[in-house]
Amino acid sequence: MVKKFVGFFNKQKKFEEDIMENGIRYSSFYGDSFHRLMKNRMAMFCALVLVLLILVAIFAPLIAPYDPAYQDYSAVLQEPSSAHLLGTDEYGRDILSRIIYGSRVSISIGIVAQIVASIVGVALGSLAGYYGGVIDSVISRIMEIFQAFPDLIFAMAIMTFLGKGVINLFIALGLLTWVRTARMIRGSVMQLKEKEYIEASKVSGASTYWIIMKGLIPNCLSTIIVLVTLGIPNAIMYEASLSFLGIGIQPPTPSWGNMISAAQTFISYRPLYSIMPGVAIMITVIAFNIFGDGLRDALDPKLKA
């Protein structure tokens, strides 16, 4: 009886060792996630679209047929033609070139604003979640105040206060979106700090900095990645809205938002002029959103709806 039991046990052990050494190749967490992401065709297609968009933004001078600021008064508000694929605007500038250059502004603002938001959000969120008590109360109240304002009015107020300009736009959009990141990180950290591996670090004498940087942030990283990817289209939309209202990117620098704003006067006469920047925004935002959803599903299979 005992012998049989030991025999069974040894077999089990050998089986385990076989798996570990010869059989299935195990991979790391991010390796697994990457495989899951690769299987999601829609997300991969959107990733391809995003890569193309970013390449277009980077190599705009090589791709754009005209200088976006070049004004040709002999050819204003033209219909699409072989010379101007999407026509020209009221100053005779090539719309396609302006959309291509506009992608630089829109995409970089989306990314930079999200990076600003993530740094602020992760720092404040993890402090609030880790320390709790008074620090948490103060940070939470600040977040509530930020959330109590209607988004666009809040951004307009900041832009009016700081003045127009690209840097100020980064700050305004960062301030607008950090709360969401901070809330998510605060929640994750509150949950994670009770884990026993955090206690294990504490027992060995780890400092708070060590615990946050080595124990908490790496475990929040998938949440942060997803938040950034889903936050970028948000920031692009806000940039477009602010530019449309005339307090975002100032002409003559082309951005998709201020192009739509300029085009609205001519909407019945040259509808394509306002539609095309809108289509550009739409493609970018949809691609980021679907890719972000795919990333979330890949990084956290439990969340999959």
């Binding site: 967490f29 884990k195 026993e196 591996y197 206690e199 294990a200 080595k214 475990n219 990283l221």
Partner: peptide, 10 residues
């Protein structure tokens, strides 16, 4: 106690 919660998964 819990060998699943006591090791940092990352």
């Amino acid at each position: 106690q819990d060998p699943y919660a006591s090791l940092n998964p990352r």
